[in-house]
Every structure is written in C-alpha cells, then in structure tokens.
Design a protein around this nucleic acid. Structure first.
Length: 287
DNA sequence: CCCACGACCTGTGGGC
DNA sequence: TGCCCACAGGTCGTGG
C-alpha cells in the first residue's frame, strides 16, 4: 500500500539511520524485484555516503556523494526494517524493529555506524534504480509526473485543467500519477468521501466550485495520515516497527456495509470496482 | 489520445 | 479444523 503518507513515514524513519552514513556493505540477494537491479548495483553503492533521503510521490530518493541517486519504490508490500547497533538507540528515537522476514529479504544495507537496513517485499512489486543526479527529473519514472499533492502546485486550477472535458470518473483520475503524484486507492476513497464527491462522477462534470474543497480535503487527509504515522495494513508498518494508526480513522475504505459516518447521513458504505480496483463510498452523501 | 483490462507475485482472511 | 479463492497498498503494457 504504501501510499504517500506511508512512504513519508518510512522516509522519516530511515533518515536518521541513513543520512550522513556510509554504506559499508550492500547485499543484493536476487537479480530483480519488479525490474532487474541496475548493472553494478552493489559496487556503485558500496562505500558511498548517503547524504540526503528525499521523497517524491511514492518514491524514496537517496542522494549519494558519488553523484547517483538511489531510487526506491515499495510497490505494494515493500518494507524496510531497521536493526540498530548496540547503544546507538537514543531513548525515544526509534524502536527496534522485528527481525527481517528472511524469506523475502532482498536487499541489505549496512552502514559505518553499525546499523543495518533490510528491504523485504513478498510480492516484489517494488523496485530500485540508480540514476545520475542530473537525470532524475527526465527519467521515465519521473518525467510527466504530476505535482506533489502537498506541494504548492496542486490546486483547484490544476484539477480544473486536468478534469476539463474528461468523461472518466473522478476516482480513476485522482489515481493517475500524471495529474497528481502520490495518491493511492485508500486516500482517494477517503478524500472523496470527506469531500462528498461521488467516485462515479465524470471528472469534467464536477463543478469548479467543488474543486477547491476537494483539494483541501486531499491535503487534510494526507497530513492527518502522516501525523498518525501512516496506516498499518497487512504489509505496512512504520520503519521503526511501530504501528501507524491512521487506519482506525478510515471512514470509507474497507467499511463495506457499515453505516456512513457522515453526521446525519444515514447511508451505508458500498463497494464497487473501478479500473479494476475497489472503491468504497457512500451512495447517499457522495454526489 | 482515451480507456479497460490483464500481468506481475505471494500471502492471507473469510467463507464454507 | 481445514481448504479454497477472492482480493490486497502500485505500475506497466497491450489492444480495442
């Protein structure tokens, strides 16, 4: 799942372990994840210092002092587990994570501080790449990607332009990373529910006046989820092993047949399939 | 260009 | 209790 809030939670968990650390040992335990690892993956990383860990949409970007950027995507079931060296855990900083699932531990990074970060991913929909720093923006993974939903370029006029004349429903278009990059199935369901916008509504027919509020609730949902440490579903926990709590606040996602929580609504959450994926919504208060 | 759908993988929760 | 299958956070490629 990891959607933007979960990836951001992972970034915040990994940053204190990796930023400024030199990778003393890198182990690549299979030739591919979703895609093959790049040529010389281990050699190009070993000995490099990771200067900064950023996030763009659902991607993590580890900037290396050698000029490459380590790009990592968690797919559906990717996770990082941290093992800290004895004595390096300051109280309250991060908690020891469960031992990495050995069956699906595909990449191991060890640092000069004695920490170890293991990437595991049962379904292997995740992937990693090494891209020269100057070529990230133009790389196919990033070229054509829409703005960050929490950034300044995501606003009502951008949505108005993207939705104009489109017959495709709002749900599917909000999942299109070319329009806005970082939303996934859960948070689109939640945002549309909060905004009272039907996922079935042709995007081009949403009145312009409703787009500002839609943008606002998208930001709100993502920010609340980040503040809560993301959502812990089957395959996601924050990097420190602590559980995210946002899933307890889902109002629509996974709540088929439950009463709608919108005050005074009285409707029942329904599940439909759009673009091959489940949509949860309230047919009564989402119009 | 637009859109629907299958493919990629493995694990698991819920129903019977 | 045990088995089976529908379904799962994402993205990419194909074909109409």
């Amino acid at each position: 799942m990891p959607e933007l809030p979960e990836v951001e939670t992972v970034r915040r968990g990994l940053a204190p372990v990796l930023e400024g650390a030199r990778l003393t040992r890198v182990e690549q335990r299979r030739p591919d994840l979703r895609f093959p690892f790049p040529e010389g993956f281990v050699q190009r990383l070993t000995g490099a210092t990771l200067t900064r860990l950023d996030r763009r949409a659902k991607y993590l970007l580890g900037h290396l002092d050698r000029g490459d950027v380590l790009v990592m995507h968690l797919g559906m079931t990717g996770r990082f587990e941290i093992e800290a060296a004895e004595g390096t855990v300051r109280p309250g900083e991060f908690i020891y994570a469960a031992p990495p699932d050995p069956k699906h531990a595909h990449v191991v990074f060890e640092t000069d501080r004695g920490g170890r970060v293991t990437y595991s991913d049962p379904r292997r929909f995740g992937f990693m790449g090494l891209i020269p720093a100057g070529a990230v923006e133009s790389h196919p993974w990033f070229a054509g990607m829409g703005p960050e939903p929490l950034g300044p370029d995501f606003d009502a006029s951008l949505l108005a332009r993207a939705f104009a004349g489109r017959k495709q429903n709002a749900k599917v278009l909000l999942l299109d990373q070319r329009i806005v990059a970082g939303l996934g199935n859960i948070y689109v369901c939640e945002a549309l529910h909060r905004a009272g916008v039907s996922p079935l509504k042709p995007a081009g027919k949403i009145p312009r006046a409703r787009l500002g509020p839609l943008v606002a609730v998208i930001r709100e949902v993502l920010e609340e989820a980040i503040a809560a440490g993301g959502s812990t579903l089957r395959d996601f926990a924050a990097t420190d092993g602590a559980l995210g709590y946002f899933q307890h606040r889902f109002q629509a996602y996974g709540r088929e047949k439950e009463p709608c929580g919108t005050p005074g609504c009285g409707g029942t959450i329904a599940r439909i399939v759009q673009g091959g994926r489940s949509t949860f919504y309230c047919p009564r208060c989402q119009r």
